[in-house]
Amino acid sequence: METFVDAGDGYRLWVETTGGEGLPPLLLVMGAGASGIAWPGELVARLARHHRVIRYDHRDTGRSTRAFHERPYAIRDLAGDAVAVLDALSIERAHVAGMSLGGYLVQLLLLDHPGRLLSAALWGTSVLGGARPDPEIRDEDLPGPDPRVLAMWEQMGQERDQEAELRWRVEHWRILNGGVLPFDTGEFEDLERRVAAHSGGWTASLAHALADRSGMERGGELARVTVPTLVIDAPEDPITPPPHAARLARAVPSARLVTIPGLGHALSRATVSPLADALIAHTRSAGAPGRTP
Rank of each mutant, 00 (worst) to 15 (best):
E21G: 08
G8T: 12
D134V: 05
P40G: 02
P182Q: 12
P235N: 12
S254L: 10
T271C: 00
D60G: 03
P147V: 11
A255D: 08
P133T: 12
G33R: 02
P274W: 06
D112I: 11
A84Y: 02
A88L: 00
L263D: 02
Q158S: 14
A246M: 04
V127L: 00
R148M: 12
R93D: 01
L23Y: 00
F68H: 03
T18S: 07
H172W: 15
G102D: 11
Y104S: 13
L166G: 08
I91Q: 06
A151E: 15
L263A: 15
R55A: 02
A121T: 01
G186Y: 07
E163R: 14
S214P: 01
W153P: 02
S205R: 04
G98A: 05
L150S: 14
L78G: 01
G219L: 05
R167Q: 14
R49Q: 15
L248W: 00
V85W: 03
D161G: 13
R66A: 06
A94W: 00
L248G: 04
P253Y: 13
G201Y: 10
T17E: 07
L166V: 08
A211V: 07
M216G: 05
L78H: 06
P145A: 15
L230C: 08
R256W: 03
T229P: 03
G157C: 08
H51W: 06
A245D: 07
R174K: 14
F188N: 07
G41I: 06
D57S: 10
G200S: 10
V53G: 09
S285D: 13
R224Q: 14
V29W: 01
A79Y: 07
H282D: 00
E42I: 01
T283F: 12
L279D: 11
P143Q: 09
L150G: 09
G157P: 04
D141Y: 12
G262I: 03
G19W: 02
R93F: 02
P114Y: 04
T229A: 08
A74Q: 04
A207G: 01
P238M: 09
L111W: 11
T18Y: 02
E163L: 13
Y11G: 05
A88G: 12
A223L: 13
S35Y: 08
V106T: 09
S285I: 11
P235R: 06
E217A: 15
L257F: 11
A245G: 00
W123C: 00
L176V: 07
W123L: 03
R213S: 13
L47F: 08
G215S: 08
M156W: 15
R224W: 00
G31V: 08
L78F: 09
Y56T: 08
G200Y: 00
G41L: 07
L13G: 07
G287I: 04
P289L: 07
P241I: 09
G36C: 01
G103K: 03
P243R: 09
L263K: 04
